[in-house]
Amino acid sequence: MTTEVATTRTITYRQALNETLRAELERDEKVFLIGEEIGVFEGSYKITAGLLEDFGPERVLDAPIAEEGFVGAALGAAMLGMRPVVEIMTINFSLIAIDQIVNHAAKMRSMFAGQVSIPLVIRMPGGGGQQLAATHSQNLEVWYAHIPGLKVVAPSTPADAKALLTAAIRDDDPVIFLENLSLYSAKGEVPDGEQVAEIGKAAVVKTGTDLTIVSYSRGTTTALEVAHQLEAEGLSIEVVDLRSLRPLDRDTICASVKKTGHAVVFEDDWLSYGIGAEISATIGEGVFDFLDAPVRRVAAAEVPLPYAKALEKAALPNAADLAKVVREVLNISTTANDK
């Protein structure tokens, strides 16, 4: 990170995104925004509020409901050196554009032997818990994290939202920038001035010695909450915030687990073939000899998410589920290997 930190302000994740888009639009005239309802309507979640007014309709382009069309159009503009930042209203709708993202944006640089690069950013929120029912509540990060040629970031704080979005816009490759519905109003300290994160790096956001929780995006917030709660019970929990899902910072994960000997992954996606599966395999390959207990995953129940509040709550992983599993992992180890 390059820093010229003098002051910080406490702002929301939403505001951090808005300010960063504004700063990048000001800095580089090749940057422009495309998305549904981002101009006149100011964005479904108001991330682009005020930008149409200040930058005009050529820099803030309202698109019809045509995800495949406008994502592909952004890709084409990127091929000619523009730096489009696309907003897809939610990650669920990105499935309509997935051909342009996976078959085209992710492939071009390699397939055309480096003759073209794709400085494209696709921003979109995922997340359940708002009673939006099965088609509007998905966490499809692993769909993109699986694809070589894409970079996938998932900031959990307003500060990271700023630094990672800045990095994503200045990056010469397609970056999938994952936001989360439940983080938009979250507040945090954000350093003023230019902040550019290094994509591909995780962060230890809380140190501890007994167990490592690995998470990302909204999950990191819950992980920290649980870690602090268990601290009061005398447990020392380390929290690793992935920040980047592709590439994955395996060293940071393994270094932490090597120290603590225990790991739990907290993820919002479905369990089978999810982010946690990749983390667990990494820990198994990297630091198996240092593990005192099996790695456990806390993930969503594998159902299309129901609308009814009670069912939705039952299906989504929460702080209580995480705390329970952390205790189970630590108990297992203390009874199994009498240290």
């Binding site: 609308y307 009814a308 509040k309 069912l311």
Partner: peptide, 15 residues
């Protein structure tokens, strides 16, 4: 979101 709903409370307004 009740079980007596047309989609058993699983779909909500849109479904």
């Amino acid at each position: 979101g009740k079980v007596t709903g047309v989609s058993g409370g699983r779909g909500g307004s849109m479904h």
